[in-house]
């Protein structure tokens, strides 16, 4: 019987790292300020003391350099977990991520595996402005060779990170800065969540709402509002973009016949377009309404909190989209 415990998203990630480092001496951490300082979001707190500076390595501010080193270490027998402090900074290391890590196995004809996890955090909501608030998961999902994990709860974050560290390929693991203090139930017993399994966070029969990361919580809030109007929304958390569990979405659409996709990333060319396209290709006859998308406005993220809130998707936008999908007047 599992023990019920409530811990934060940051603590859950810390536990996953600790457990995997204990289980496998090849797991090492690389990143900026992750050692004595414990990481800017305190995710790696205490790990330096426990595992020493050979395994928790503070690096210079050089994302290309230490991401590349993580790749080289992964190719030669280590299991590095590289922390890139903000997802926006991954752009500095994109050659290493997209040209090197993602393609090494294929280019070598399968000789080389790159069991590397890049942990980072993204998203807006606290006035970090245009270069510290982006949701860039689609960029990684667009390049074959990477798996992409975007967890929404402490439970999912822990189980998915533990699985990610045991993958044999590079995994981009994107946390959300607004979720680090969010609490949730996490059993004290060890568990894993396999990559590629979406999760129904709330069952419903009238409209399917698909999302991930922080927006899942917005969708659940929206579902509660819709319930007051007698609408039962089903909320699906994709949890991983690659692999994509489209089957669960299709199954839900077969029940609800209506689909709303919600992401914090800018709307144009986001992953929502991919999911919408796939659903119309594979489940066109199930649809009773056009697939609708809710995403951020197609602008850089403004600093001013009022402007930021307005440009990011809010609960109201999701409620409106669900009502639209049901042809109810907004």
């Amino acid at each position: 019987m599992s023990t019920k415990r409530v811990i934060t998203y940051a603590e859950a990630i810390n536990e996953a790292l600790r457990e995997e480092m204990k289980a496998d001496p090849n797991v090492i951490l690389l990143g900026e300020d992750i050692g004595a300082y414990g990481g800017v979001f305190k995710v790696t707190k205490g790990l330096l003391d426990e595992f020493g500076s050979d395994r928790v390595i503070d690096t210079p501010i050089s994302e290309t350099g230490f991401t590349g080193a993580g790749i080289g270490a992964a190719m030669t027998g280590m299991k590095p977990v590289v922390e890139i402090m903000w997802v926006d900074f991954t752009l500095v290391a994109m050659d290493q991520i997209l040209n090197q890590a993602a393609k090494m196995t294929y280019m070598s004809g399968g000789q080389t595996k790159v069991p590397l996890v890049i942990r980072t955090q993204g998203g807006g909501g606290r006035g970090n402005a245009a270069q510290h608030s982006q949701s860039l998961e689609t960029m990684f999902a667009h390049v074959p060779g990477l798996k992409v994990v975007v967890p929404s709860t402490p439970y999912d974050a822990k189980g998915l990170l533990k699985s990610s560290i045991r993958e044999e390929c590079p995994v981009i693991f994107i946390e959300h800065k607004m979720l680090y203090n969010q609490k949730g139930e996490v059993p004290s017993e060890e568990y894993f969540i396999p990559l590629g399994q979406a999760d129904i966070k709330r069952e419903g029969k009238d409209v399917t709402i698909v999302s991930l990361s922080r927006m899942v919580h917005f969708c659940l809030d929206a579902a509660r509002e819709l319930q007051n109007e007698g609408i039962e929304a089903e909320v699906i958390d994709l949890r991983t973009l690659v692999p994509l569990d489209l089957e669960l979405v299709k199954k839900s659409v077969q029940k609800t016949h209506r689909l709303v996709i919600v992401h914090e990333a800018t709307r144009s060319y986001g992953w929502g377009a991919e999911v919408a396209a796939r659903i119309q290709e594979e489940a066109f006859d199930e649809l009773d309404a056009p697939v609708l998308r809710v995403g951020a406005e197609d602008v850089p993220i403004p600093y001013n909190l009022n402007l930021e809130k307005e440009m990011l998707p809010q609960v109201r936008d999701i409620v409106d989209a669900a009502r639209n999908a049901l042809y109810l007047s907004v």
Binding site: G70, G72, A73, M75
Partner: peptide, 17 residues
């Protein structure tokens, strides 16, 4: 230049192990 940090990572493995 992309192979240079990768070699540094391989050296990290050699040192670590």
């Amino acid at each position: 230049g992309a192979g240079i940090p990768i070699a540094v990572g391989a050296a990290l493995t050699a040192k670590n192990k």
